[in-house]
Design a protein around this nucleic acid. Structure first.
Lengths: 189, 189
DNA sequence: GTATAAAACTAACAATCGTTAGTTTTGTTT
DNA sequence: AAACAAAACTAACGATTGTTAGTTTTATAC
């Protein structure tokens, strides 16, 4: 029963519109119409269109950063860490699939300091991912494939989950996790 | 009489800009500046901004449609067909990585008839992909995993190749094909 | 019931958008 | 050098953009 703040409602509505058409193609009048108010009224709750975008993206990026740091600092082997990464992506996707569209497709429209912050978080995330895979190959827990290809193919699938999962209506999160681990790590042949 | 070459130069420049910022965020003045001319001069060669987008996307979508039809109608088993699909994506990516950004991220900005044509081609492509996987599972050439997850994870990786491949400077196409087959079909563990 | 704050409104701004019209420059052919 | 078309230009259009200012409505607290 606790009502979401009006600002959060706007951000949620914006996430949906940004997912459908992208940040640049969504006007403040589009967003206002989705909220059932006039464009100028939005500014009682938010500072700018840019603030909406950066709120959506930075919050999500920090979730991934926090999650990855927890995984990196855990005492598990490479395979277990990869499974935890898959869990992380599924969890975030379930919680905020709409926002992930902006994180994946509209990050380049962030402005100076937020853009830099985002790019650093993304770089660090990928570097951590790469190190986990590299470590797994060294310890022969993972096949000696091209590390870049493993990271790329796994990450591109996980990053695209937000597009696919909402269309799968009757799939349980636990089953999804299990099957993603199976397909991504163990192959299909 | 027809300025084919200059028109193609414009389309190529547009592909690069669309890749960097997306269709909606690129103005005709941006494109003109990239071409070293004024915005109005673009209209000696193209009819509209929309025409540029539809040319980029529809041409690529038809390449995939043609390629997929060839694969579907061949006398090969499921694994071989999946390998051919991987080849197809790598070939198209090598030939036109920039345009693929529009196909993946800006298709929703196509207008009525082109949008419908694109959506039908994409639907048919995915349906063909799904049938190949389903057939492979039935014949026990492919593990009995969730078919949707296999299609999704494979396709999301192939569709994202355009983002990743240009950054890999010293990787040969043949090696890439081999490794992609290895990672996507045989797993990493 | 009145005061106060939250949240909506109308009206408009300067800037920028895709695009058109009309004109001039450039390059090639005769 | 004259003719002609390709391709550039200047100038501007109507529409739309994000945003601001000032005002009115709505809901809550005393």
């Amino acid at each position: 029963m606790k009502p979401e703040s009006r600002k959060q409602e706007i951000i949620n509505a914006a996430s949906i519109l940004f997912k459908e058409k992208g940040y640049s193609a969504v006007t403040m009048r589009d967003l206002a119409k989705a909220m059932g108010i006039k464009a100028a009224s939005l500014y009682n709750h938010i500072q700018s269109k840019q603030e909406i975008l950066s709120t959506i993206i930075i919050e999500l990026a920090e979730e991934f950063t926090t999650g990855m740091n927890r995984i990196v600092n855990s005492n598990e082997n490479s395979i277990q860490k990869l499974e935890k990464i898959i869990d992380l992506h599924i969890d975030v996707t379930l919680r905020n699939a709409d926002g992930l569209a902006s994180l994946n497709s509209d990050w380049m429209h962030l402005e100076e300091e937020n853009l830099q912050h985002f790019e650093k978080m993304r770089h660090d995330y990928e570097e951590n991912f790469r190190n986990i895979v590299r470590n797994g190959v060294d310890k022969e827990e993972i096949k000696p494939c091209n590390i870049e290809i493993i990271v790329f193919s796994t990450l591109s699938t996980l990053r695209t989950l937000y597009l696919w999962y909402p269309k799968q209506k009757d799939i349980d999160a636990a089953i999804l996790k299990h099957d993603m681990v199976s397909v991504l790590l163990k192959g299909v042949v």
